[in-house]
Every structure is written in C-alpha cells, then in structure tokens.
Design a protein around this nucleic acid. Sequence first.
DNA 1: ATGGTAGGTACCCTA
Length: 268
Amino acid sequence: MRFMTWNMNSIRLRINLLLDLIKEEDPDVICIQETKTPDEFFPFGPLQDAGYGHIHIQGMKGYNGVAIMSKTPFDAKNQFDRVGRPDCRHISVTLPAANTNGPVEVHCLYIPAGGYEPDPVINDKFQHKLDFVDEMSGWFKDNYTPDQPLIALGDFNIAPLEHDVWSHKQLLNVVSHTPDEVTRLEKMQSSLNWTDCTRHFVPEDEKCYTWWSYRNKDWKKSNRGRRLDHIWVTPPLADGIKGQKIRTDVRDWTKTSDHVPVIADIDV
DNA sequence: ATGGTAGGTACCCTA
C-alpha cells in the first residue's frame, strides 16, 4: 500500500493541489496535518469523488487539525487528547489485515512546533512540545509491543539527524534540532523499535529535507531545509518497506505549503 | 545581527 503524509497548512486553500497530487501518486492512505478547519467545513466532497470514501478527521478553528483518508474501509478509528489538550494533533485508524501481519494501526501525528525560544523554562510552547513527545513515547510503550504492526507518520517538527538540517552546527540551538528534542524523539523511536522509512533508503550522511521556510527569498537556491516530516513503521512491517519518495518539486507549486509530501510504499 | 513570509482570524496568533 502507498502511504502519503503532507502538512498542507490549510486543506481548504490547497484542496486542488492535493487533488493534483492524488492524480500523480495515487496513494491508498493519505495523512494530512494542519488542515486548519473545523470538521463542518472539511472538503469531504472532492476527496470522496477522488476515491477516498473513508475519512477520519479531527479539526478545530484556526489551528492544527489532522485527517486520515483511505480508499479502503477502516476497522476502527480514534482521536487522542495529548498533554491534556483537545488540540487535534493525533488520530488513528486500523486497517484490516491484508496478510499475516494482522490489522495495521495508522497514527497521524502533528507534534507541536514549539515556538521560538529553545528554553522550556521561559517558553511554554517548547515545554509543551517536549511533554508531547515524552507522552507519545510512554503511550506507545504502555499500549503496544514492538511485534505489533503500526505506522506512525506526520509532521513531527523535529529533524533528528545531523544531515536532516542544512547546517547542524548553526541549528543546534534552533527549535526543531536541539539536543533536548532530538533525544526525546530518539526515545520515542526506540519505544517500539520504529524504522524511519526515509532513512531506510537515504544514507545518513546525505542531506535530506521535507520543509523550507516561506521566509527564504529563493528556497531552492539557499536550500536551507529541514526534515520534519516522517513515516515510521514497527518491526513486523520493516521488511515490507518497498520504497520512499519526497516530492520536493511540490515546494515549487503555486501557492503551495512550506512542507512537501512524503510517500512510502509498504507491504502491510 | 536582523528580518524575512504565510494562513486564519479578527486587529493578533501560530508556524
């Protein structure tokens, strides 16, 4: 099955870009972050017409919001309040068993960006981000074992490896790449021995990004990117990772998002 | 060292 994740920074504004992308990539399951819409305004019609008859969302006014869309039915769906806040950052669905792996849980995550100042004492948004990742680690460990088939994907807002950012040295004290966050994301990754689908294929010493700031005059020329968007699978699915693709070219589309779509083909 | 852009919303917040 083909899985795609994209932080769209408003699904209503960019629904036509998503429909174009669907025509090109034909994903089976689509996870969106920053839908930025209350559920009553979600563009169900065009997505159902495009073949996604099974849609699970949790949105709110103004900020955040996540969505999972599938061509095939779900067995179950859930919404989770994280760090005690109903702020629409984590939903999941269960896909029916396709083979001996059994049903596969798909978790769509939008980890908080964490604000500007990388000090949890003076910046409560950064504290919230650290708490969110800590809670996810504990929750995965408490509720699952590594032999269960799960996929976690979305905008994690953390670039964990040295070559997940344009300059490791210059970003060590910049929120998204600080040791504080990276250590916590590593702990989350070890909670269920998750495999990072992108780095499964792209060598660790090769630069690799999924996000470029809107503030750069020429994002391609300066190429000051970060790899904030991830697709992870637990051990039963690791042998089934058949490929991955980052649609960097989408960053050049008219009125596009600052994030680009990440795609993984996984035998589930 | 600084400021640069974008979206949603309501004149400011978050990214």
